[in-house]
């Protein structure tokens, strides 16, 4: 039964990987795949046709090309923000979990405070002041998502530290550095990976939300921005579903595949891991 579920999880993860790679490759090779220059103006509000597979938007840009280029922006923001968030989170979690004492209290206090502040409203507020800009978005999203990782990593570090084999290694004469490298880190790595994947997904969703509200970068059109324009510039009213359905589908598929991948990193249902990720 366990083996069957493990294989099934892996198969799902494979599907996830394939889907994700399709999008990643699409983003990388966007230039080759786009039938038109996404910035070029054609006739606006055109319905899908042979030349414009998904029609054109309110200023006449080819939607299909925008969609392909959008992959680049959405995925980049997701991954970069994810890197920042997990980078900070791992650092904080490792320090707090390993050093304990005052440092732990201070860091966890900080983490708890940031964790309880609602993310989207904060990001909206800061983004409004900062103005549009893809790097601002990445930074702000990254700075909002680190606490969740920090908590989870710290908890894992604590549990590893208190485990019998770490104590045995200590009894053998190992110092902190040795324990960290040799026992703590290898046991924490899968968790870090899983958290990273989930954070990328969350970051992509947040970017999409920000863009929908009009806070995205018009120079770097993500899928979220496409949805924003579709809604705000009359695509929705005109029932141009070919404009707003594809970007949504793309976002959903990416999130889905990332989530599926995170399941397989769960390592054969390690219950502690699963509980930690549920947070």
């Amino acid at each position: 039964m366990r083996l069957a579920s493990h294989v099934k999880t892996n198969r799902l993860a494979m599907v996830g990987m394939i889907i994700l790679w399709v999008f990643i490759l699409g983003a990388v090779f966007a230039q080759l795949l786009m039938p038109h220059d996404p910035w070029r103006h054609f006739v606006p509000f055109m319905s899908p046709s042979v030349t414009h597979v998904l029609g054109t938007d309110d200023v006449g840009r080819d939607i299909f090309s925008e969609l392909i280029l959008g992959a680049r922006v959405s995925l980049t923001v997701g991954f970069m923000a994810g890197l920042i968030a997990v980078g900070i989170g791992v650092l904080v979690g490792l320090l707090a979990g390993f050093r304990r004492g005052y440092l732990d209290e201070i860091l966890m206090g900080l983490t708890d405070v940031v964790l309880v502040i609602p993310a989207l409203p904060l990001v909206i507020l800061v983004s409004v002041y900062l103005g549009p800009g893809i790097w601002y978005t990445i930074l702000v999203i990254g700075l909002v998502f680190w606490p969740s990782t920090a908590r989870v990593i710290r908890s894992q570090v604590l549990s590893v530290r208190q485990s019998g084999y770490v104590e045995s290694a200590r009894a053998l004469g190992a110092g902190d550095g040795w324990l960290m490298r040799r026992h703590v880190l290898p046991n924490v790595l899968p968790l870090i990976l899983a958290k990273f994947v989930l954070t990328v997904a969350a970051a992509m969703l947040m970017e999409a939300s920000l863009s929908f509200l009009g806070l995205g970068d018009p120079m770097a059109k993500s899928w979220g921005m496409m949805l924003h324009y579709a809604f705000a510039r009359g695509g929705f009213i005109r029932e141009m579903w070919w404009w707003y359905v594809p970007p949504g589908v793309c976002i959903s598929l990416c999130i889905l595949s990332l989530t599926l991948i995170s399941f397989s990193i769960e390592e054969g249902s390690d219950p502690r891991l699963r509980r930690a990720l549920d947070r």
Partner: peptide
């Protein structure tokens, strides 16, 4: 899983449409 992966507002748009 499917619902979890969708942007809320996008589903809203679909249903509204």
């Amino acid at each position: 899983l499917l619902i979890y992966s969708m942007p809320h507002y996008w589903l809203a748009m679909l249903l509204l449409f």
